[in-house]
């Protein structure tokens, strides 16, 4: 017979174990979301900056003020690159996840920012996030690449970020059923066998409502499918399948050893978002 205090203790441990189990099955991902990656013609591009778990969105985390937020654009392969700072367009909001609310940001830069044809690579360097469960900070340098009008630009060029996932395929032009390839880099060099996590953005962000859609698009058959954990090859290259339309996040973990923030370990991660489209008439 279990005494009452022991029963409570067992229940508490069970809750803790379940929490640990779930936290290990899903990954933190910095979202840099816009609904459409391949625009027919120029228009204003709304953005949502949310730190969450894209597959389940059970827990959304507070973001501090970003350190950097800008877009690098290029019209045509030979044209000069242009960098436009976007910090002035950041608007702090409370974002609702499926279970929690958290501090996040939206941005509505005017059409003039994306008025030209070409590629636009949005870059976000968020404030380091303290992850109490691991007693360390996480900072995810995040890129989202969109295109206006079908005229490509610098989508395949590294931007000189300290850690970066450099695309080998256009992140905005992918059919469902295809594959996407990229190279994980740190300090401009490929990172052999980098630890990489993949998640599907299962709950569509609704920017105007400042929340995720409470209905997910798919269900994972088992926890291994929530975050797909893979390794880059010996050349730092990753290749992922795209079995479902929508956004896929690629996150390469802890790419710069020995970094600290406020006396704690800092995991400097690189995130790239890729959008896949259904083949329809």
């Amino acid at each position: 017979m279990i005494r009452r205090d022991s029963a409570m203790s067992v229940r508490r441990w069970a809750v803790l174990l379940v929490a640990m189990f779930f936290s290990s099955a899903e990954a933190h991902f910095q979202l840099l979301y816009t609904p459409e990656a391949a625009l027919q013609s120029s228009s204003a591009v709304p953005l949502a900056l949310v730190f969450s778990h894209p597959f389940n969105n059970g827990y959304t985390m507070d973001m501090g003020a970003p350190e950097e937020f800008y877009v690098v654009s290029q019209r045509g392969a030979e044209a000069p690159r242009r960098t436009t700072d976007l910090m002035e367009f950041l608007e702090p909001v409370t974002w609702s996840g499926v279970e929690t609310q958290a501090a996040a940001f939206i941005a509505n830069p005017p059409r003039r920012v994306t008025r030209s044809l070409g590629d636009y690579t949005y870059v976000l360097r968020p404030a380091p996030y303290y992850e109490a469960g691991e007693d360390k900070y996480i900072q995810q340098v995040t890129k989202t690449v969109i295109n206006v009008g079908g005229l490509p630009g610098a989508w395949d060029e590294p931007l000189g970020l300290p850690v970066e996932i450099v695309p080998l395929d256009k992140p905005y032009a992918n059919w469902v059923g295809g594959v996407f390839r990229a190279v994980v880099t740190a300090g401009g060099q490929p990172v052999p066998h980098a630890e990489v996590e993949i998640e599907y953005l299962n709950h569509e962000p609704q920017i105007d409502a400042r929340r995720f859609d409470s209905d997910g698009k798919v269900t994972a058959p088992q926890d291994s499918f929530i975050t797909l954990s893979i390794r880059a090859d010996a050349n730092g290259q990753v290749m992922i399948g795209l079995p479902k339309a929508g956004w896929w996040g690629i996150c390469a973990l802890d790419l710069d050893d020995g970094l600290e923030h406020d006396g704690k370990e800092l995991s400097l991660d690189a995130v790239l978002w890729v959008q896949a489209k259904d083949m329809v008439r």
Binding site: S42, R75, G76, A77, E78, G149, P152
Partner: peptide, 27 residues
């Protein structure tokens, strides 16, 4: 290589058109 062109109004009684090709080639 698909030709691509788009135009915008500069708001000062002038219009700018941009062009190129789908392989990134110059116009």
């Amino acid at each position: 290589h698909t030709p691509i062109c788009d135009c915008y109004d500069n708001g000062d009684d002038t219009i700018t058109c941009e062009g190129g090709f789908s392989d990134g080639g110059t116009a």
